[in-house]
Design a protein around this nucleic acid. Structure first.
Ligand code: FES
Ligand code: FES
Lengths: 161, 161
DNA sequence: CTAAACTTAAGTAAATTGGTAAACTTTATG
DNA sequence: CATAAAGTTTACCAATTTACTTAAGTTTAG
């Protein structure tokens, strides 16, 4: 029921690259240091992000990583699924698989709903939103990416703090 | 990111007991057979449900299992957490632990929101609701426990089917 | 040609998952 | 009180996943 370190690192990495304003590619080594990711582990994650089409890598001296899409087009869900595969709260919710026990088990719809609620948040959160927030930083003060997302989703969740 | 079999079996078990109208306790063996749970595995899960205070067990011949609370007071979240411990989508969301890297990492609030959305569904779903649905069965036709829950949560999610 | 950078492929220790198995305790009932 | 029916406890296990580490490549700027 928990995000793996791989996926967490992938998110940090993507966010790190999205925050980079220069147009020169970022090296794994820099990212690893800045984001507290074991370099040798990151080096294993980067190719996965690439085969998922999220980043473009340049080999050789002076090489590095840059995004293939605009940060506003990259959602948290997309990053997580690139690393972990489809997000599913229960086995029967993967793809089109349904409960093998009953045509419609009463619990199924509930899990499906819980999952949709969760995915809605992860989908509405883009790298652009996250970068905006951390850069506006002290200015707006209370505006969090989560608050933005919460208002996007039509649900009046009250955020404490 | 997925429910374990233990927890899934625990839910099935609780639902099986809640659906039982007689006042005599149910045996593990019956439940295992009816719910397609390996008996030897269920026998390991039952004591956990008991120490969590969800069920009462009677030993010896003629013994079995019954609920300690009313089905309307037992939520899916409660059952899952009895087996798996606190539900958390990321390590830093367990209990009061916060991100060790930054006082407030921009992603944290997003995960927290996603988690609240998910938990709201699991909390609003009680055994009573699930039993109602499967027993009314063909009568109401379209009423699902999920639809009930969706309307409880103030969020107009449209359920297909 | 060489150092800087990504790539590929193993390997690995520890934890989790999904079970199985066996020995034990409790209790109704004959 | 003997016994069978039930839950309890403890231990074990194989397979998978997780989070890394290591090492031997390959590519490219300079
Ligand atoms: S069909 Fe998915 S929970 Fe039963
Ligand atoms: S503090 Fe929880 S995601 Fe960073």
């Amino acid at each position: 029921m928990q995000l793996t370190r791989r996926a967490e690192y992938a998110i940090r990495t993507m966010l790190d690259i999205a925050s980079n304003l220069d147009d020169q590619p970022l090296m794994s080594k820099e990212i690893a240091a800045r984001q507290d990711i074991p370099l040798n582990f990151l080096i294993q994650i980067v190719p996965e992000l690439r085969s998922a089409g999220l980043i473009h890598t340049v080999r050789g001296s002076g090489g590095g990583i840059y995004l293939t899409k605009k940060p506003s087009e990259i959602s948290l869900r997309y990053i997580v699924e690139a690393i972990e595969g489809p997000i599913a709260l229960n086995q029967c919710l993967i793809g089109d698989a349904s409960c093998e026990r009953q045509p419609r088990c009463p619990i199924h719809e509930v899990w499906a709903l819980a999952q949709r609620q969760m995915l809605a948040v992860l989908e509405a959160t883009t790298l652009a939103g996250l970068v905006d927030q951390s850069q506006s930083g002290k200015k707006a003060g209370k505006t969090s990416a989560a608050a933005d997302v919460a208002s996007k989703i039509n649900n009046e969740v009250e955020l404490e703090v």
